[in-house]
Amino acid sequence: MQDTKSVLNAYEDMPLGKIFHHHWGRTLHGSDNVIFCSETGQYNPIYFNAEYARSLGYDDIPIHPLFVFNVVGGMTVEDLSEGGGLFLGIDRLNNLKAVHAGDTLTSSSEIVARRLSKSRPGWGIITWRTRGLNQRDELVIEFDKTNMVRCRDAENV
């Protein structure tokens, strides 16, 4: 078996237009949501008061979109950023459809921009467009994430 570190993707493994279908998928639960909203202080009762959520037209308490973002983004890490490299930014994040407890999300990403870093030899800067789908293949979230990505031969940078 190969050294695990050697199989993580590097800059060279992420050509423009390449699509990654990420592992696992994840069913979201009401318990996830209440812990998330509590520990990050999301003080809007839509996300923790079912009567209030229904009065605003939701079927039930929606999962907070920022938790959806982090799960959909979390599933991209093994393919795209576990190889090391700082998280630089997020653009064009759109929450397109409410997610509810019991929904299952999967995640895929397409490489949409890449260049080598000028200031840090051995590193590249890559942007991928990530899409999160629910169990009915409906797009629930999309966003562009930009990270530094290590080049394959860049040891000790």
Binding site: P65, F69, L88, G89, I90, D91, R92, L93, N94, N95
Partner: peptide, 10 residues
């Protein structure tokens, strides 16, 4: 509703 985010920079 929480619609969108952009220009997030770390």
């Amino acid at each position: 509703d929480d619609l969108s985010y952009t220009n997030i920079r770390m």
